[in-house]
């Protein structure tokens, strides 16, 4: 099993939730390093840590919302180890990066092919990656403007609902994480922002609660409401 930052895998190993015969540290492979901006894209190597994305001048200039998202993941120690590739390959339903990948129409380049964001996240902790397939880098489309807002669980810090709103040349994209079994695009909010890219265009809107996560922390209806609030806050930040 490949190991990058280990922020999910090492705890899973400790709990015996993962019991691989071998663990291979891929974090220092040269193919997985580096951040490049150009041609309307920002391409980030899979082994880039959240702290490196947050600090990157290239990311801050081209997609400040992506740098801010990275700066809000976990805590400083986690950001110094956790990687972009690990986060998207794990596809935790409460992870932040998948929302940016979907809303920024990213392309996920692996050692075998390039997978569009729309086909990458297939369900809770499930992706289109085949066994042995490794994420090399993620190419994000640079939007006209974008913002990410999440309601973090006060103890764990994980998103109970996180919404990434981006305006692209071909229209707005809105991606919701934390609320459902996996990240999803919220088409109704995209349609509303297409007519007017303003927070008030989203007034009263929330995603359908059926199918959203319900647990001891929040009901599905509460998460639906939070997603609406986070979407409006994100839109208000850039309107």
């Amino acid at each position: 099993m490949p190991l990058a930052g280990g922020m999910t895998l090492v705890p899973a190993l400790k709990l015996r939730l993962a019991r691989p015969s071998h663990v291979v540290d891929i974090a220092r492979l040269p193919e997985l390093q580096g951040i490049e901006a150009g041609g309307g894209r920002v391409t980030v190597g899979a082994a880039t840590t959240h702290a490196e994305v947050a600090r990157s001048e290239a990311v801050r200039r081209a997609i400040p919302a992506l740098a801010a998202l990275a700066e809000g993941i976990g805590d400083p120690q986690v950001r110094n180890r956790g990687t972009l590739g690990g986060s998207v390959a794990n596809n935790d339903p409460v992870a932040d990066y998948p929302a940016a990948v979907l809303a920024l129409d990213a392309a996920i380049e692996t050692n075998r092919r390039t997978i569009p964001a729309a086909e990458f996240f297939v369900g809770m902790f499930a992706t289109a990656l085949a066994p042995g397939e490794i994420v090399l880098r993620v190419a994000f489309a640079v939007p006209h403007r974008a913002a990410y807002r999440k309601f973090a669980h006060p103890a764990s810090g994980y998103a109970m609902a996180g919404v990434f709103v981006a305006e692209h040349r071909d229209g707005p994209r809105v991606a919701v994480t934390g609320a459902g079994p996996a990240v999803f695009r919220w088409r109704e909010a995209e349609a509303a922002l297409s007519s007017a890219f303003r927070a008030e265009a989203l007034a009263g809107l929330e995603p359908d609660a059926s199918g959203l996560n319900a647990d001891i922390h929040a009901s599905a209806e509460y998460r639906a409401n939070l997603a609406g609030v986070m979407a409006r806050r994100a839109a208000a930040a850039i309107e």
Partner: peptide
């Protein structure tokens, strides 16, 4: 840079 040493293999 600060890291949590309980969440890293020594080999890393």
């Amino acid at each position: 840079r600060p890291v949590k040493s309980c969440t890293m293999l020594a080999a890393q």
